[in-house]
């Protein structure tokens, strides 16, 4: 039982990773955000870092930028270039990053 568990864990460590690497390209467009918010959203400036924010929070803020209910200097303009699906994918990415 113990050994089979280890086997499963070892198998799991590699199967999905290789699967992702070979079949599904990552969402490269998310790196557009890195220019101002830092690589993987880990910026260290007055521009807010995005790494580790929750997915619903990011989605909500972008929706507010798009709707004009959260004031912004530039994000109300840039956010309108991305679909809701793209925003959700970007939000998931940043939520998964360590702060």
């Amino acid at each position: 039982m113990k050994r089979s568990k280890i086997h499963i864990v070892v198998a799991l460590l590699f199967v999905p990773i290789i699967g992702v690497a070979q079949n599904t390209p990552p969402d490269y467009f998310v790196a557009n955000c890195f220019n101002c918010h830092g690589t993987d959203g880990r910026g260290h400036s007055t521009i807010p870092p995005l790494a580790g924010l929750t997915k619903p929070y990011i989605i909500e803020q972008i929706a507010a930028f798009k709707a004009g209910t959260r004031p912004a200097t530039v994000m109300h303009q840039l956010s309108k270039g991305y679909t809701d699906d793209e925003i959700a994918r970007a939000a998931a990415y940043f939520a998964a990053q360590k702060k």
Binding site: L12, I17, V20, A21, D27, T39, A96
Partner: peptide, 16 residues
């Protein structure tokens, strides 16, 4: 958790 890590960390390359 592993699948999420694999797909979400793919941009930063740690998956490879």
């Amino acid at each position: 958790a592993l699948t999420a890590t694999a797909s979400l960390s793919a941009l930063s390359g740690t998956a490879f």
